[in-house]
Simulated scan of single mutants.
Amino acid sequence: MTGSTIPYDNMSTPSKPLPFFTKCCFCIPLRIGCFILGYFSLVIKTVHTITLIGFTAYFGYTTHGFDHFDRPNDMDERRVAELDIMEKPILKRIELFFAIALLANFIWLFVNIACLVGLHKRRPGPVRLYVSFATFKLILSLVGIISLMGTDLTRVLTAIFEMFTFVLAAYFILVYYVYAMQLEREEFERQSNITFEHVKTIGDIYPTKLDKQNLVA
């Protein structure tokens, strides 16, 4: 082994960040922009989750655990049975909808918090995870926008508004993605420097070139 050989443990060089994309909204450093977006998203998601929990609890209470609504005391038993047959399937679907919505919100909150922790500790992994989830959510919203397309004016205006929010969300995802590449580049350079210093230390302890006189008995 020569002193100039540096083992990188098969580390692949990460992609370089886009040279023309160094600011968020063309004026804010990427790191600060990611923090602003992350904490703003955390506040919005927290408020939305608390509201959803409250609404779910209220609806569950008024329907006796998503079973039925209150009936007038003088209602005919046959009419009560007919309402039960109609209401229960609908209430069960509403219960399932609330369960899925709450689960999605809790997962999104976890990913959002993990992303902020990654930003504070300069770890690209959690930021990449956030980008993946946000991209998946963006694809779902695109499907919703396509379903709104039609000849009705209200649907068209709604689709235009949703498209605007889609483009804005896509831009913010790109901000996170570029900053994640920057963090990966920084992490790669740190690991490379550590490896170089380690090899240099080994070279100092075990020199690769020995004086021939030292080998003479």
Results as ranks from 00 to 15, higher is better:
residue 18 L to C: 14
residue 87 E to K: 04
residue 138 L to Y: 05
residue 193 N to K: 13
residue 149 M to R: 10
residue 41 S to T: 09
residue 10 N to R: 06
residue 207 P to L: 10
residue 204 D to H: 12
residue 22 T to W: 04
residue 60 G to Y: 00
residue 37 L to Q: 04
residue 108 W to A: 09
residue 44 I to G: 09
residue 102 L to R: 06
residue 145 I to Q: 03
residue 124 P to K: 02
residue 212 K to T: 10
residue 31 R to P: 01
residue 136 F to R: 09
residue 72 P to Y: 09
residue 190 R to T: 05
residue 78 R to A: 09
residue 84 D to C: 07
residue 215 L to S: 09
residue 134 A to V: 05
residue 92 K to G: 05
residue 209 K to F: 09
residue 208 T to D: 11
residue 168 L to V: 10
residue 86 M to W: 01
residue 77 E to P: 00
residue 38 G to S: 12
residue 36 I to H: 05
residue 61 Y to F: 15
residue 64 H to I: 00
residue 98 F to D: 03
residue 100 I to M: 13
residue 164 F to M: 02
residue 37 L to F: 12
residue 164 F to P: 00
residue 187 E to Q: 13
residue 113 I to Y: 02
residue 95 E to M: 08
residue 182 Q to D: 00
residue 86 M to I: 10
residue 201 T to G: 07
residue 195 T to G: 05
residue 53 I to Q: 00
residue 12 S to H: 06
residue 87 E to V: 03
residue 78 R to K: 14
residue 5 T to Q: 14
residue 61 Y to S: 12
residue 183 L to N: 04
residue 68 H to I: 03
residue 19 P to Y: 01
residue 196 F to H: 08
residue 12 S to A: 10
residue 206 Y to P: 02
residue 133 F to T: 06
residue 196 F to T: 03
residue 100 I to H: 00
residue 16 K to D: 10
residue 170 A to C: 11
residue 134 A to N: 03
residue 56 T to S: 07
residue 140 L to M: 14
residue 131 V to I: 14
residue 16 K to W: 09
